[in-house]
Write a protein that binds this DNA or RNA. Structure first.
Length: 379
RNA sequence: GGGCAGGUGGUAGAGUGGUCAAUUACACGACGCUGUAGACGUCGCGCCUUCGGGCUACGGGGGUUCGAAUCCCUCCCUGCCCA
């Protein structure tokens, strides 16, 4: 086993648990938030800053690093840890999400959590988007066009494993297809069955004993499918499990998905909820038994001017902060709040100074780290 | 005093007889962001509106024309050059 997972405490009032994932590059105390560093960097901040914030691991993306600089180069440079100078645990996403974000998501004009229903769309627009679709799914794998130069590529479970092996993360994911909330049950089931076959192939081609492979539960927002998928994937010899794919339309769908899936996953292995990470969601999902989360939200929001605060978000770009001497949050212990006012942050964003996104990213990641720490202590 | 070039919305700067309330950018205002095609995107940005439209606008005034930001006259202002 490339990792060890120890559950140190279980909640009496919920399915929440406290634990530790031990890897070759150190531990991850769970429940944990995993910052996303798609292109071998958490946008805007150094690994030193990330460590000071307290992040114990980060997640990079197979698709992006395969296209640039190329997994072979990363391998030649000594692997991701050495390449990006991060000696703590790293996760890599399998590239399956890009099948979605460059394929169905573009086609349907939605995210993982749909906020619109079909029927309102202009047909001409839809048609055009489909024509320009970047990804095509077949039994063997996914044919896709690079978003960088339009070149053709083909990912299979074996190829994803090979790339992730070259990248050298501690925890890697099986190749899957992330379905859209707009997919009907028929397509979602076909896709899920295919993802199951891909899971077997991923497992079969996974040879590197230093990496832990996580399987991914799919099945959209359909109860039967989620249960089937959780049982199927949960019974396989993975080191942990990711819950991915469409999480439905309204928010409660997502919680249903977890309620349908988690009971079928082995208790003693870690569970990761892919791509979810708003504070409210994490609070609820931990109670349902999720151990780890990765999400671009804190970094993206920060870069775009929104700070996470106890009450929700605070947009420092707003004119009302122009003369505000207060920090984002007086009680926050992060570097940004210890040293800078809202007025200054507001100014940085208006002046398009890069320090703005940097300071805000630091605040938001600290907020998440602090949130998860409090959650761990409260279980 | 003479010559030349100009004066367009918060700013810069298009437009040079009708399709112009006026391209575009910036600024400004608001909203959005959940395994990152995202330090990004969307919307608004003369006034009023029952959202159909109405009204006032391209330095000021006058004129030509069915019609002027666009052509003519005049005044004012700005910049550059010469004295």
């Amino acid at each position: 086993m490339a990792i060890k997972f120890r559950i140190t405490k279980k909640s009496k009032s919920s399915h929440a648990r406290v634990g530790v994932i031990e890897t070759e590059h150190g531990v991850i105390n769970t429940p944990a938030f995993v910052p996303v560093g798609t292109q071998a960097t958490v946008k805007g901040i150094t690994v030193e800053q990330l460590k000071n914030i307290g992040s114990e691991s980060l997640l990079c993306n197979t698709y992006h690093l395969y296209l640039r600089p190329g997994d072979k180069i990363v391998k030649k440079m000594g692997g991701l840890h050495k390449f990006m100078n991060w000696d703590r645990p790293i996760w890599t996403d399998s590239g399956g999400f890009q099948v979605f974000s460059l394929g169905a998501a573009l086609e349907h004009g939605v995210g993982k959590i749909a906020s619109i229903f079909p029927g309102h769309k202009d047909l001409g627009e839809t048609e055009r988007v489909i024509k320009e679709k970047f990804a095509r799914v077949t039994e063997d794998g996914v044919e896709f066009k690079s978003h960088l130069d339009g070149s053709q590529h083909f990912f299979t479970p074996e190829k994803s494993m090979g790339i992730q092996n070259n990248l050298g993360a501690d925890i890697i994911f099986a190749f899957d297809e992330c379905t859209s909330p707009m997919h009907d049950i028929k397509y979602t089931q076909e896709s899920m069955d295919r993802t199951h076959r891909w899971a077997k192939r991923s497992l079969a081609s996974h040879k590197n004993s230093r990496q832990a492979l996580f399987g991914i539960v799919q099945g959209g927002a359909y109860k039967d499918l989620r249960e089937t998928s959780a049982k199927f994937i949960g019974n396989m010899d993975f080191s942990g499990f990711g819950i991915g794919g469409s999480l439905g339309k309204p928010k409660r769908d997502m919680y249903n998905v977890l309620e349908w899936s988690i009971p079928h996953l082995p208790e003693e292995k870690p569970r990761h909820l892919l791509g979810i990470g708003s504070p409210e969601d994490i609070l609820k999902c931990v109670k349902m038994g999720v151990d780890t989360f990765d999400c671009v939200m804190p970094t993206r929001l920060g870069r775009n001017g929104s700070a996470l605060v106890a009450r929700g978000r605070l947009d420092v770009r707003l004119s009302k902060h122009l003369k505000d001497k207060n920090p984002i949050d007086k009680k926050c212990g992060c570097y940004t709040c210890q040293n800078y006012s809202r007025a200054y942050l507001c100014h940085l964003f208006r002046a398009h100074e890069m320090l703005g996104p940097i300071l805000m990213t630091m605040h938001n990641l600290y907020f998440m780290e602090n949130l998860l720490k409090k959650i761990r202590e409260s279980i």
